[in-house]
Structure formats: structure tokens, C-alpha cells
Design a protein around this nucleic acid. Structure first.
Lengths: 181, 181
DNA sequence: TTGGAAAGTCAACAAGGCTGCCCTATCCTT
DNA sequence: AAGGATAGGGCAGCCTTGTTGACTTTCCAA
């Protein structure tokens, strides 16, 4: 046991790997995910949107000017599926689709003011819940939470996840005089 | 700061509560949930079922003989949504619906042998991934993972989650000579 | 015994996944 | 300059799974 190739930090038993423990984890994941989406869902319902709209707004906020293809890759859905959602967002004046500068075939996606406002409202609702959970559980639990979630991801997905960088509003205050814009 | 009403165990800073950290957590949750459902989804697709079928099988396994209404409450969906799924499961001979003994309006749900077999296949696929993630992250991370997930749940949902007890196959080996059947 | 409430079933609709096929515009290589 | 590859978009139509509303059957209490 002392020569275990993967020594378990702080763990002397494998009780946390019993089927029953794992089953509880699966159920926790199921219920927590429902809670996790519940608050934005309420707002979305008001305005006749769905989760797909929220996801699009989120990732456009994350990386303004990203192309349709990139967004497709991040979301892992088909073109048509995304397109339907994107079309309504553009028609409703939440998203601006501009012809790409280097490659004119591409469309670069940006949020309008209205889009920023809605995204903020949605994500603040979601963040409030996560923040409360984080605060209640404490930083060490949060670290474990993140570790397990990341360990659960696939290679493909993990690449997507890790490729995401800082959000722009964070960058604003962090480096006002940043790289040439 | 030293007089914080909720002292943070082992934490000297609130860096884990920045919007950026929380945003990362949200994204991790999104990607991990997709990974989490990916394996059973593949199996389900083979046989023309969806996630809803898996969920029903899971909770019937969890508590054999539960009524449609109880299942409804656990899943948090409407009757028709569940009913459609339940009907196909019954028609396909995976679930057995018996008239309630005390109240003949109720239907008590049980898995058939075939149902048990599929449920096992599905949940083993899912458990394999979670087990791998648990093993990679270690018991302390798992504890944190569970804490955060639970802290994320609502009152209503938390009641449902906590009401779930041991699964029957676990009970079999644990207490062969249990309470009167 | 009668009337309301509860359990379950069914019909019809909507969101948002999916596929297949077709089309335009643009780019890049030959 | 020609032709294939790529980015994006549109249409038709499928499926699952969420929704509401109307309808039995059964139970129970007035």
C-alpha cells in the first residue's frame, strides 16, 4: 500500500471508490446541475429564450470576435443547431455578426450593449448561486471540486476548457495599456 | 476581515471567490456535465433511448416499487414527460408497473431482469468515468467536490437528494437477514 | 352516496438537438 | 484563371423531452 503508484493524498483507504460512493456522486452531479441552471432558466423563460442562447452569449462574452466555427467547436453542437439560436440573437439585436478581417468568409461575433446587459443578468444569477456554494464549502473544497470536474473531462473537451482564457471585462481593469489593439 | 462571520477553513484570502474563478467553475461544470453523460448517451443511442430513460431506470433501481408520483418528484419533471418514457420502458419489457397494494390508484414500478441488465450497463459506463476521475483526484478532492455540489442545491432538491438511501444490490450483501420483507 | 382530490394516461405543442442536401462567398493552390 | 476546399447559411424534416390541458379511475370524507 505504501508503494501504490498513485499514492492517495491524505487517504489511507479506498472507501471513496465504492460503487455506493460513486453512485452518490452521480446523483449529486445530476441534482446540482439542475440547480446550477435553474436561475438563468427563469430569466430566459421570461424572454422566450433557452439555455442554448445563454451558452452562446456566455462564450461570445468570453472571447469577443470569435468565429462561428470556433463557437461551434466550444459548444460541441451542429451548425444548424447553433445557427437557429444565433439568428434569433442577431435579429433581436443582442449579437453583432461582422465579416472577418483577415478572412472575409468568417463571421466574427460580438455582443451589442443589449447583449452585454442580458449576458450580465444571466451570468450574475448563475454566479450568485455558485458563489454562495463556494463560500459555504470553502476554498479547499472548491479546489477539490475543480479537480474532480477537470478529471472527468475528455481529451477533446479538456482542450476546449483549457483554451478558454480570461474574460475581457477582467482584462480591462488588469491591463488597460495592453497589447496593441 | 478577521471577524468574518464565516471563517474560511484553511483560507487566508478570498481569491477563490473572484468572478473569474467562479466563471471558471461554471465552465468546468458545463464541460464536465457533458462528459459525465457522454458514455451512457452512446449506449442509449444504440437502442433508441434518451437520457430520460436512463434517469428513470436509475431511480427505479434506487428504490424499487416506488410510485409514479414519487419518481415524478425526484426527477422534477411533468407527468407526461415521464409517462412517455415510462410507457416505452414498460412496452419494451424493462419496467414492470404493478397496481399499488394499499392504494389501487398508484402504480408501483419495478425493473424486470432485462431492465436490471440495461441499467447495470448504463450505470457501469457512467461509474467508470466517475471512478477514474475520483481516483485521479483523490479522496480529499472528492470530499470537496461533494461539498460544493451539495451546497449548490436548493432546499427542495436537497430534500430529494438526501432522501435517497442505499441501493438494493448494496443492501443485499450488507444485510442478508434484514427487516421483514 | 355523492363530490372533491389524487394518481395516472393521453393529445397536442415547443425548444433544441440531429441529419442531409444545397447554396454563396471567399480563399488558396496549381 | 480554374478548381477544390473552407466558412457560413438556409430549408426540410426527424427525434427526444420538456410543457399544458383534458380525461379516467380510484379513494375518501362529508
Amino acid at each position: 500500500m505504501r508503494n501504490d503508484p498513485h499514492p492517495i493524498p491524505g487517504g489511507e483507504s479506498l472507501l471513496f471508490l465504492t460503487d455506493e460512493q460513486i453512485r452518490r456522486g452521480i446523483e449529486a452531479m445530476y441534482f446540482a446541475y439542475r440547480a446550477f441552471t435553474a436561475d438563468p432558466d427563469l430569466i430566459l423563460e421570461e424572454i422566450g429564450y433557452g439555455r442554448a442562447h445563454h451558452r452562446a452569449l456566455h462564450f461570445i462574452t468570453r472571447d469577443p470576435g470569435l468565429t462561428v466555427t470556433s463557437l461551434l467547436a466550444v459548444l460541441g453542437v451542429t451548425k444548424q443547431s447553433l445557427n437557429r439560436v444565433l439568428r434569433t440573437l442577431i435579429e433581436d439585436g443582442l449579437v453583432d455578426s461582422r465579416v472577418g478581417r483577415r478572412d472575409r468568409r468568417e463571421r466574427q461575433l460580438y455582443l451589442t450593449e443589449k447583449g452585454v446587459a442580458l449576458e450580465r443578468r444571466l451570468s450574475e444569477a448563475q454566479r450568485a448561486r455558485v458563489r454562495a456554494a463556494y463560500r459555504a464549502a470553502g476554498p479547499q473544497a472548491v479546489a477539490g471540486f475543480r479537480q474532480v470536474l477537470e478529471a472527468m473531462m475528455d481529451g477533446e473537451m479538456l482542450v476546449q476548457f483549457r483554451a478558454l482564457r480570461e474574460a475581457p471585462d477582467q482584462r480591462l481593469s488588469a491591463r488597460r495599456a495592453g497589447s496593441a489593439g
